[in-house]
Design a binder for these strands. Sequence first.
DNA 1: CTTCTGTTGTTTTTCATTTAACAAAGCTAA
DNA 2: TTAGCTTTGTTAAATGAAAAACAACAGAAG
Lengths: 225, 225
Amino acid sequence: MDAKRSSRNLMKLPEPTVERLSEYRRSLLQCLEQGKTHIFSHELATLHHNTAVQVRRDIMFIGYSTNQRKGYDVRELIDVIGSILDSGKSLNIAVVGMGNLGSAITAYFLGKRSKMDIVASFDVDPQKVNREFSGILCHPMSALKDIIREMNISIAIMTVPADSAVEVANLLDEAGIKGILNFTSIPVKVSPRVYLEDYDMITFLEKVAYFVKHSTRQNVSPSKI
Amino acid sequence: MDAKRSSRNLMKLPEPTVERLSEYRRSLLQCLEQGKTHIFSHELATLHHNTAVQVRRDIMFIGYSTNQRKGYDVRELIDVIGSILDSGKSLNIAVVGMGNLGSAITAYFLGKRSKMDIVASFDVDPQKVNREFSGILCHPMSALKDIIREMNISIAIMTVPADSAVEVANLLDEAGIKGILNFTSIPVKVSPRVYLEDYDMITFLEKVAYFVKHSTRQNVSPSKI
DNA sequence: CTTCTGTTGTTTTTCATTTAACAAAGCTAA
DNA sequence: TTAGCTTTGTTAAATGAAAAACAACAGAAG
């Protein structure tokens, strides 16, 4: 069932692979800054706590290959991953809820990736409305639907208090948003049209706690070169 | 290979299962607040965008069962999940780096879970040292090793700037930390003894972006009841 | 009392992802 | 030039998780 992937990025990649590719790129960009032009599969593997085989397989997946044995060309690899992850049009993003977390995230993302731009933010607090946070203008909640349409925003980052999570999610859904990254600890329901990713930090912390307690586990597989 | 799991929580659970259990508990706690005493498998499933079968299988995994057909007893289920996730001693946590993100996270976690306490924070900035953030005292970076030992801290949340990530990770490693939740966009190396979870928000955002673009995908499986 | 419906618990099957094994090819050095 | 080492690319096996199918059982309704 090897559905032809001759021409790049036509096929849909499995979720874990997409995640890893994003991580690889992050490291590759860093390598570039340090003037590193080539990188071996096992180097990338070490950086991301998995195996060299896994890295090669991922890279094969996206159709890149080098015939050199000096490792992968960093620049080229970044471009190929980019052609998969960024494919085509760039997406506009909004941050909803400009509390501590919201403004931290806005500052954090700023200019980290082309092809993904935070273009607006929202809050109920009149103190915050019409102010800029990290250069991004904060709009009143009441304007949410209109602005999302006008500015062609397709992804929302939800950083509102728990008790308004459901309400806000509904608003976003109605406004025709395409994807939501939910930082709230509340599970929300949206129409199946919307891609929803729940991102609860407590869950991750509990995961770490669990494996710390059952600490026979290693975070690196022993077969790693 | 059904390795006996007669007595609860002896066996190590797979990572995805641990993640889901944590998420279930979050919703269950919410149900409790709303006065809901029983919950069906398909209700939990809807809340978490997976199937009723999956929920039942997870619950079976941890050895809980109800003979009633009124659904699971919310209170009991919370306790059983707790006995797995919180098993035994409670863990002390430190936040390293009290910038925007660090203080946001500190405030966010506050009192959300027993059995996991943020007990200290650290920063290089003299302006921040000796102040309290959300009731947690901020210590100078130089005291990191000592405090970690004194206060028996086993998990660190890393929210420092990118360029000091590696250095801080080494410090934590040397101090004998058991688990690290890395919010930095830099991959760090630690000894295999340490459980490391990288938590890059950009990766998640890129994942959402990818699947928004390839939007044939549904976020809920159609076979969900 | 019996039947029917709705829900759970377990086993089996299917599927996807990871791991391993192997083949090919380029650089290096003798 | 050739032998050997190192690294990649591909195919095949194994593992692990999700889905489906099925069995059991409690309560409701008639």
